[in-house]
Amino acid sequence: MTPARAFHLITAVVTLAALLLQLVLSVSGAAVLLTEEMPSLGTRLWRLVSYFTIQSNILVAVSTVMLARDPQRDGQVFRIVRLAGLVGITVTGLVHFFLLRPLLDLTGWSAVVDTLLHVVVPVLCVTGWLVAGPRSRIDATAIAGATLWPVLWLAATLAVGGATDWFPYPFVNFREEGWPAVVVTCLGILVLFAALFVAVWFADRRLGRTREREPHS
Rank of each mutant, 00 (worst) to 15 (best):
T141R: 05
G88C: 06
R73M: 01
L106Y: 01
G42N: 09
A111Y: 01
G93S: 07
V191E: 08
I143C: 06
T64Y: 14
F7M: 09
A132L: 00
A140G: 02
V198Y: 04
T115D: 07
I58F: 03
P134M: 04
V131E: 00
V49Y: 11
L94N: 11
T185G: 15
A156I: 10
I143W: 00
G85E: 12
L94K: 14
A203P: 02
V172Q: 08
V87W: 06
A163N: 02
L158S: 07
R209A: 06
C125G: 05
L154W: 06
I58Y: 03
Q22E: 13
A61C: 06
S40G: 13
R47H: 09
Y51G: 05
T15H: 01
A4S: 14
M38I: 13
D74K: 03
L23K: 07
F78H: 10
T115I: 09
L207D: 01
T141N: 04
R175S: 08
P134W: 00
R69E: 15
T107N: 02
F171A: 14
L103D: 15
C125Y: 04
G93C: 08
A132Y: 03
A163R: 01
A6L: 04
P180C: 14
P39R: 08
T164S: 10
A199E: 07
G42V: 03
D74Y: 01
P215G: 07
R211A: 01
T157D: 11
I89V: 10
A12R: 00
A31M: 03
V182F: 13
G188E: 07
F197H: 04
L34T: 15
W201I: 05
S28P: 01
F171E: 14
L21W: 08
V14S: 06
Q76G: 14
E177P: 09
E176C: 10
V126D: 02
L124V: 02
L59S: 10
T11G: 07
T2E: 14
V131D: 03
P215I: 12
P102K: 14
V62Q: 03
G133T: 02
D70C: 11
G162I: 06
T127P: 01
L190I: 15
R205N: 13
G88Q: 06
S56L: 15
L154A: 11
L116P: 00
V81H: 11
L23Y: 01
L192Y: 12
P122L: 03
L116F: 02
V32K: 03
A61H: 09
M1V: 03
A4R: 07
A30C: 02
H118A: 13
E36I: 10
H216Y: 08
R44A: 04
V81C: 08
R73H: 08
V151I: 10
T53A: 11
M66V: 12
L158Q: 09
R101H: 15
R213Q: 05
V126L: 09
W109Q: 08
P150R: 15
V95C: 13
P122D: 03
E214A: 05
V113C: 02
G208W: 00
N57R: 05
G178T: 15
L187S: 14
G188N: 13
V27A: 05
P71Q: 12
W149N: 11
V200I: 10
H96R: 15
D105W: 07
G108N: 09
Y169Q: 12
C186K: 09
F174P: 14
G93Q: 10
D139I: 10
L130E: 00
F171H: 12
T185N: 15
L152V: 14
M66Y: 13
F167K: 04
V81A: 06
